[in-house]
Nucleic acid binder design. Structure first.
Length: 278
DNA sequence: GGCGGAAGGA
DNA sequence: TCCTTCCGCC
């Protein structure tokens, strides 16, 4: 199976599950692509990181962590992208700090120019419009047991929030897989591999991880899921739920995330939560 | 360096 | 809404 995967990074006439776990397309969708809104900073950073733009920015030693190696250069690149010739690191970092409250990013304390993505939140806020839980229950078997209390009318959340997401998260081996547990495919026809700059997640050429296994995957199973499933159990075992950010997301996931990342549902959960992830 | 308030622009 | 700009504080 081949795909001519194209993106802001380039063309990849290679199997899309090739060497690394994949980000969904939205994570790398170029700013100038039709229908996209103006590029967001986190998106721009992921683009640079995915490209392996190691001069200005690179992945750090921990999951989701990245290091700004040349702050002024990064600011210049960001300024060029946004048409802001007077951009500097001070301003860029202010924009980064606004992500703290949104829980998209947090600062790695004690390490200069080092920040950490909260990918699980990134998935949630950018994964709008998944179907209501009752549809999920009716249409497709979920990869985790559904409690009677969750099926019975009153407990079914209106837009995928609440206990169901909590439980999906708990059953997810990786936050990036959450959308697939929720059974709505991301727009993946043009998926592409990230060029080997994602920390900890090389798809191993381990015995038993042959492509033949893919045939056993559910129809419509997205490439990212496929790539993730290539990870050996011990790879997952190296990261605790805490490290995946599951603690945080489980705690905050009573928030329902709908269109445009709007939160609905339980008030007083999430916004009032703590700001740390570790 | 890093933080966050405030005002303002698109 | 998502920054950009400026600023005072630590």
């Amino acid at each position: 199976m081949q795909c001519n995967c194209s993106s802001s990074i380039g063309s990849f006439p290679s199997p899309y599950w090739s060497r690394t776990v994949l980000f969904p397309d939205w994570a790398y969708k170029p700013a100038w692509s039709p229908g996209s809104r103006q590029v967001q900073l986190w998106h721009f950073l992921l683009e640079l990181l995915g490209r392996g733009e190691s001069g200005a920015i690179g992945w750090g030693g921990e999951w989701g962590e990245f290091v700004i190696r040349d702050p002024e250069r990064l600011a210049r690149l960001w300024g060029e992208r946004k048409g802001k010739p007077h951009m500097n690191y001070d301003k860029l970092s202010r924009a980064l700090r606004y992500y703290y409250n949104k829980r998209i990013l947090h600062k790695t304390k004690g390490k200069r120019f080092t920040y950490k993505f909260n990918f699980s939140k990134l998935i949630l806020v950018n994964y709008p419009g998944h179907p209501p839980c009752h549809q999920l229950i009716q249409s497709t078997p979920l990869p985790f047991p559904v409690l009677p209390s969750e099926v019975g009318g009153a407990r079914v959340p209106q837009c995928g929030g609440g206990a169901m997401i909590d439980r999906a998260l708990q059953s997810a081996t990786h936050p990036l897989m959450l959308p697939y547990l929720l059974q709505k495919p991301l727009p993946f026809p043009h998926s592409h591999p990230v060029q080997g700059h994602f920390p900890f997640l090389p798809v191993p050429s381990a015995p038993g991880s042959s492509y033949s296994n893919l045939r056993e995957l559910p129809a419509g199973c997205a490439p990212a899921t496929i790539a993730a499933l290539h990870l050996t159990p011990n790879v997952w075992a190296t990261k605790s739920g805490k490290e995946w950010g599951l603690n945080n997301i489980t705690r905050t996931s009573s928030l329902c995330v709908g269109q445009g990342g709007k939160e609905c549902g339980d008030k007083g959960v999430g916004r009032g939560g703590t700001d740390h992830f570790e």
